[in-house]
Design a protein around this nucleic acid. Structure first.
Length: 284
DNA sequence: ACCACATCCTGTTAGC
DNA sequence: TGCTAACAGGATGTGG
């Protein structure tokens, strides 16, 4: 599933081929992908035609296409969405829902599960996505997390998936970050100490940075704008590794459902009981 | 305000 | 072997 590193990898490539070029045509936009939009599919297609692309920004897992004027297009890849750069003569793949023809190529959105979305917004710089801190922003600190998580009983894993708190994490990197800083995913968010929150912030930045350097994790669907998989799968230490030995202590990795999402962790390195880490082995 | 759960969707996998 | 059912999850909406 495309999370921050995957979306950013796609953005970096598409930006180069799109910016400065004119949209000649939007030959296809499936109405079913247009959600929470101020314009319907037809209107979006006719509005984009003839406009020049001025930028492609990212906020969390959203991509923002800047064209002429202050309005613009918001894209989200959902879970199975792929955004690729193709030759116009290449036949449409099954589940192609959006095609934007620019210069001598086409940007295509293919999304079998249709969890992704396309929306036209009145102000592309303030698209109203209600996103929390960018993990790489200097505002994203242990103090920030302490403030937004204080007295919250929600599992820290669920809190990390809440885009209004931290923008860009998904299931893979939430699990990986919690493993790195040795915090159990089911811990109540408000129970984490300031020291733990500081570790968590550094762990989140680390796992995202490593994945970005590897051009993302190709677990099931993800490929970059040229259709190439990312190289980060080999760097995952807990995600989808249930039953396999922990890379740190050889205990088998556990899987449990938290907030309706599968969570992977080492029960030895990430004890649930508080106040015992580093001194005792949790018994549970 | 906070939190749990249902919803959307289809390709893949587990189970009988 | 072949079918069906469960599963996967990002954002949003609902209801407690």
């Amino acid at each position: 599933m495309p999370e921050l590193p995957e979306v950013e990898t796609i953005r970096r490539y598409l930006k180069e081929v799109l910016v400065g070029h004119k949209i000649s045509l939007v030959p296809h936009l499936d109405e079913r992908m247009v959600k929470h939009s101020t314009l319907d599919a037809k209107a979006i297609a006719s509005r984009l035609r003839g406009q020049t692309v001025h930028g492609l920004q990212r906020q969390g897992k959203f991509l923002l296409l800047q064209t002429d004027g202050v309005e613009g297009l918001v894209l989200h890849l959902g879970m199975s969405g792929r955004l690729t750069w193709e030759r116009p003569e290449k036949p449409w793949e099954r589940h192609t829902h959006l095609i934007i023809a620019v210069g001598d190529g086409e940007m295509r959105l293919v999304d079998p599960r249709r969890f992704g979305r396309v929306a036209w917004v009145k102000n592309i710089l303030e698209p109203g996505l209600s996103l929390g801190c960018d993990p790489f922003s200097h505002h994203f600190t242990g103090s920030y997390l302490a403030e937004v998580l204080s007295h919250r009983m929600i599992a820290i894993k669920s809190a990390l998936l809440d885009q209004s708190l931290v923008a860009g994490l998904g299931n893979i990197y939430a699990d990986e970050a919690l493993f790195r800083c040795r915090i159990h995913p089911a811990r109540p968010a408000g129970s984490l100490s300031r020291e733990e929150l500081g570790r968590l912030v550094r762990a989140i930045r680390h796992v995202l940075k490593v994945s970005l350097a590897n051009r993302g994790t190709s677990f099931s669907d993800y490929v970059d704008a040229l259709g190439h998989p990312g190289d980060n799968l080999a760097f995952l230490r807990v995600y989808a590794r249930n039953g396999q030995p922990c890379v740190r202590c050889r205990h088998p990795i556990n899987r449990m459902v938290i907030g309706g999402r599968s969570s992977h962790f080492c029960p030895h390195c990430q004890p649930l009981s508080i106040g015992t880490e580093g001194r005792f082995h949790a018994k549970v």
